[in-house]
Design a protein around this nucleic acid. Structure first.
Length: 477
RNA sequence: CGGGGCGUGGCGCAGACCGGUAGCGCGCAGCGUUUGGGACGCUGAAGUCGGAGGUUCAAGUCCUCUCGCCCCGACCA
């Protein structure tokens, strides 16, 4: 606990790791690339889950659970899919002390097993749509791992839907992308760019992929959520057919969409500072921490009594914690809770009791500047108001940061410079060659073709050919 | 898989070049004094030096092999 965090300016990725370890979000597990999500990190994940699950239910989805182990042959049924995932599969070859007749893969994603089941369940247009989500773990044998951002095993949700028409499936794809965008902005206080993935960046097996892209504190892009339109690709591979209203046999149209524990990494990098985490109030496991201050036993008794009352009054509406540990000094606690990113701190000592007030300290505004006093009788309203303000200020700050580091290069030299310093929106002809050249020269990739497009797009910044769309180029995680 | 770094009490490290009975800081336990921005004193517990083999009277230290982790790149949510 309570060790020094490497400053971001000195080594950003070191800072990132320090924050996660010291704030006790996660720890390294004995197996390479695997991590333990510790209680504080898991509480954060639970809040993310709840906020998303609410939205999934509100858009008509239900939860289910499909198995971890998938027959290897299933992965091979869709050509592009197997090609995309083969290199990173974990395969079970033995069970019960014997070699298995057919190896089982540990799911890297569940399209295949779920679609195999859908083939069994779908007969008629009346069986559609199927709107199922599952919360699960998946395994991808990545070469390079990083806490939360890319671990061998990770937690996520994956929605898998089947529809009677292409229009309906496409609508669903975009609806869920929009759910992610709204979630990221409202709950995570993280502005995102929504758009379509290029053909080279899209999901293995999808006809079209869409993503939300966020800018991290080091100006790199992080894909924070994806939604895929499959058309009938998987339906044909798995034989998911139904009789439509005209008594004609037809393949279903499908989607899948997911977000993962990577979002926790995003929260760390979007809002955190050199003191540690800064959590948006809506997702923070502890929204308000009360730090009591006393000198002697008599004061301790009085202060703890008052602090207990403050806690009781707030606990109806707020996730509040009273830190009454005797073994740490107030100063130590200030630093500790700041590292853990608690949005609002209440200090209460003898002076405050005398004045019938408490001191409120905002995590997002360090030092004296973020401190105000609050009369005891205005406690509930002021705390609620401040938490709302912090939430929106965090969003505004992240948005400003992104905008300050966003560029609109007109030629290749400008593009190369722009992606060194942040996001670059630039005209692109749509060819994979131009994409590859940029990646080769600058390490930046196309993140997405934003839905929001300017009225006029100039020629492709790479080849100079006519371009129809502006694309977001950035270095990505 | 390529490049770099590192495995020594719980954590961070020193000791290695030059072999000779394992040390420092933090943390931990007990007691006392402290507490409005990371308190202090005293006492104490805790280490198969990643693993195997070798050289030697003697190995944390030298040699060989091996395992693992972290960071940087290619792959990726």
């Amino acid at each position: 606990m309570a060790e020094k965090i490497t400053p971001r300016s000195e080594d950003y990725s070191r800072w990132y790791t320090d924050v996660i370890l010291q704030a006790e979000l996660a720890d390294y597990a004995p197996v390479k690339g695997c991590m333990v999500i510790r209680p504080y990190g898991y509480a954060l994940w639970e809040n993310i889950q709840q906020a998303l699950d609410r939205r999934f239910k509100a858009t008509g989805h239900v939860n289910a659970y499909f198995p971890l182990l998938i027959p290897e042959s299933y992965l091979r049924k869709e050509a592009e899919h197997v090609e995309g995932f083969s290199p990173e599969l974990a395969v079970v070859t033995h069970g019960g002390g014997k070699e298995l007749e057919e190896p089982l893969v540990v799911r890297p994603t569940s399209e295949t097993i779920i679609n195999a089941m859908y083939a069994k369940w779908v007969r008629s247009w009346r069986d559609l749509p199927i709107l199922i989500n599952q919360w699960a773990n998946v395994v991808r044998w990545e070469m390079r791992t990083r806490l939360f951002l890319r671990t061998t095993e990770f937690l996520w949700q994956e929605g898998h839907t089947a529809h009677a028409t292409a229009e309906e499936a496409m609508e669903e794809t975009l609806r869920m992308l929009n759910v992610y965008k709204e979630f990221a902005e409202t709950e995570m206080a993280m502005p995102v760019i929504a758009g379509q993935k290029s053909m080279t960046e899209k999901f293995a097996g999808a006809l079209a992929s869409y993503s939300i892209e966020a800018m991290m504190g080091d100006k790199r892009a992080l894909q924070a959520g994806t939604s895929h339109y499959f058309g009938q690709q998987f339906a044909k591979a798995f034989g998911i057919q139904f009789l439509n209203k005209n008594n004609e046999l037809e393949y279903v149209y499908q989607t899948s969409w997911g977000v993962s524990t990577r979002l926790i990494g995003a929260l760390v990098m979007v809002h955190g500072d050199d003191q540690g985490l800064i959590l948006p109030p809506r997702l923070a496991p502890i929204q308000v921490v009360i730090v009591p201050i006393w000198r002697d036993e008599e004061q301790k008794r009085l202060v703890l009594e008052a602090a207990g009352q403050v806690q009781a009054r707030l606990s109806a509406t707020t996730r509040v914690r009273l830190d009454d540990r005797d073994e740490y000094s107030p100063g130590w606690k200030f630093n500790d809770w700041e590292m853990k990113g608690v949005p609002l701190r209440i200090e209460i000592g003898p002076k405050d009791i005398e004045n019938a007030q408490v001191v409120l300290a905002r995590r997002d505004i360090p030092g004296r500047e973020g401190k105000t006093t609050c009369p005891m009788d205005a406690l509930e309203s002021r705390v609620a108001e401040l938490l709302t303000t912090i939430q929106s200020d965090l969003y505004a700050r992240a948005l400003r940061f992104r905008e300050e580091n966003t560029f609109y290069p007109r030629n290749y030299a400008e593009l190369a410079e722009a992606v060194e310093n942040g996001f670059a929106f630039a005209a692109w002809c749509g060819s994979a060659e131009c994409e590859a050249k940029v990646k080769e020269d600058t390490k930046a990739t196309t993140r997405c073709i934003p839905f929001e497009q300017p009225a006029e797009v100039g020629p492709c910044v790479v080849c100079g050919q006519p371009a129809e769309k502006q694309v977001l180029f950035a270095r990505a995680y």
